[in-house]
Design a protein around this nucleic acid. Structure first.
Length: 459
RNA sequence: GCCGGGGUGCCCGAGCGGUUUAAGGGGCUGGCCUUGAGAGCCAGUGGGCAGGAGCCCGCGCGGGUUCGAAUCCCGCCCCCGGCGCCA
């Protein structure tokens, strides 16, 4: 059985406490509980009626006497009328129940800080951030305030922001023209930035696949009922693009189609865990973002991502969640980008996850750590909705698998981090050492530095 | 896109309006047997309600006809073959 339904029936009070932790209205638990009880009662009554009808109906087939048949048919018709009425009632309640169950969020892991966004806490730091002298106070607010003593280098010159770096210094991006022809939050990137993106993706693919993850390019669009099972309503409203006139939706991450890979299937315990490295473009409306990060390519409608995804045994999902964030950390350590890991607070988890780690890289120009990676443990929340069952060979017991996901690299975000952390006084950008071998394969790709250009030449 | 064939449980596969039971097989699980394994035998193996037996639902999805539908009708989805179109 789905763990949330079991909890709803057995310990609704505990479920309510979890909903409260998420700063959501706990009355939906009461509503779901009552509707479930009502549904079960009505279902039992209806089944009794259906039983009567089945009995009569079957006896007609055995009855030869035409008079007797006529009588039985009339009796069956009478029962059918009653059934029809009750079925209508049941359907109504069932729809309500389904909607309520689907709106229930997952539980919350015990070690998740309780509260809104501000309650999220850093749990570890890596690297030596470059902090502009006027950002030092802000930096300490993001480190020492939480009891961490993070080594840093003070820089005197104000760093150039990633957006300026891309468009005005390097002149290798154009969000103005993209804005005119496609809309804001779209972009053109050129030449070395494109090579850099290719290298970042290859590097992440290389790293994750060498850990045994299966490389996959999934469908970039999904049917409505499938994508709605994978994500929560909020994400759906804020992020998802629809194809006009068709029941198709553009994915916001390859998490969505990879989770759907075993839609309505059974997985046996001895074949788990199943690990995937997905590569895909991601399409996001960013409807809830307002005016945030309008400049540059930090928050855009379209980017490329290498994603990690795992189908897991329930008893292993915690451990594998740590594995996912460790993998992501390895990637950013390789890139030598200073970062911190955040344990996301209960109010900011999203309905699917019981726990979420973000990896945030220090952005010298912004004076902030910014999200590059998000790693979630969804336990059986997604799997229940997708109908991905777990069959344990011992006793052939059935339940639901656990699913986990994490970014490996998100192209545009990683590029902004490199632009801010690797910029030099002369306007060049040093290429992270680890990416160099992935650039060698292109004849025109840069080797050590990305140099500014005059303008994009139209040869 | 058009024409034809098809979609049945974890898998294969029969059934094509009514003998209360989706036959049969494979796989898997449990038990018996065995020093152990195998073979053999028995039972279980879709979802739900009740959890004692029992009952209801379920044959790609959604409707419809009928007292009764896997079976007949309509719409949609997908797969296979042929024709057309096309990176």
């Amino acid at each position: 059985m789905w763990s949330i339904l079991a909890l709803l029936r057995q310990e609704p009070g505990r479920l309510k406490a979890y909903v409260e932790k998420r700063l959501m209205d706990p009355s939906i638990v009461d509503e779901a509980y009552e509707t479930d009880v009502e549904w079960r009662k009505l279902l039992t009554r209806l089944n009794q009626l259906r039983r009567e009808h089945n009995k009569v109906s079957r006896s007609i087939g055995r009855t030869k006497d035409p008079e007797e048949r006529k009588k039985l048919i009339l009796e069956a018709r009478g029962l059918l009328k009653e059934i029809e009425i009750m079925e209508k009632q049941l359907k109504e309640i069932e729809e309500r129940r389904e909607k309520l169950l689907f709106s229930l969020p997952n539980v919350v892991e015990d070690d998740v800080p309780v509260g809104d966004e501000d309650a999220s806490i850093p749990i570890r730091f890596w690297g030596k951030p470059k902090v502009w002298k006027e950002h030092v106070k802000a930096f300490l607010d993001q480190t020492a305030k939480y009891g961490f003593h993070v080594d840093y280098d003070v820089i005197d010159e104000r760093p150039v922001g990633h957006a300026d770096m891309l468009e005005n210094v390097l002149k290798l991006g154009d969000t103005l023209k993209a804005g005119e022809v496609a809309g804001s939050r779209f972009y053109y990137t050129f030449k070395d930035i494109v090579f850099l993106e290719m290298a970042l993706l290859s590097y992440a693919i290389d790293k994750i696949t060498s850990k045994g993850y299966t490389l996959v390019i999934p469908p970039y669009m999904l049917r409505g009922k499938v994508i709605k099972s994978v994500i929560d309503l909020e994400t759906f409203k804020d992020a998802i693009y629809k194809i006009e006139g068709e029941d198709l939706y553009l994915i916001a991450t390859s998490e969505h189609p990879i989770a759907s890979l075993y839609y309505k299937e059974e997985l046996y315990d001895d074949e788990l865990p199943l690990k995937f490295a997905g590569v895909s473009p991601c399409f996001r409306k960013e409807a809830g973002a307002g005016n945030r990060d309008l400049k540059g390519i930090f928050r855009v409608h379209q980017f490329h991502k290498v994603e990690q995804f795992i189908f897991a045994l329930p008893e292993e999902s915690k451990k594998l969640h740590e594995e996912l964030i460790k993998n992501a950390e390895e990637i950013f350590q390789g890139l030598e980008l200073p970062y911190r890991i955040i344990n996301i607070a209960s109010g900011d988890l999203g309905a699917c996850a019981v726990k979420k780690y973000d990896l945030e890289v220090w952005m010298p120009a912004q004076g902030k750590f910014r999200e590059m990676v998000s790693a979630s443990n969804c336990t059986d929340w997604q799997a229940y909705r997708l109908g991905i069952r777990l069959v344990r060979r011992k006793g052939m017991e059935r339940s639901y698998v656990h699913t986990l996901n994490s970014t490996a690299i998100a192209s545009t975000r990683a590029i902004t981090a490199i632009l801010e952390n690797y910029q030099n006084q002369d306007g060049t950008v040093t290429i992270p050492r680890v990416l160099r071998s992935y650039l060698e394969i292109y004849k025109e790709a840069p080797h050590d530095y990305i140099h500014p250009i005059k303008r994009i030449t139209k040869k």
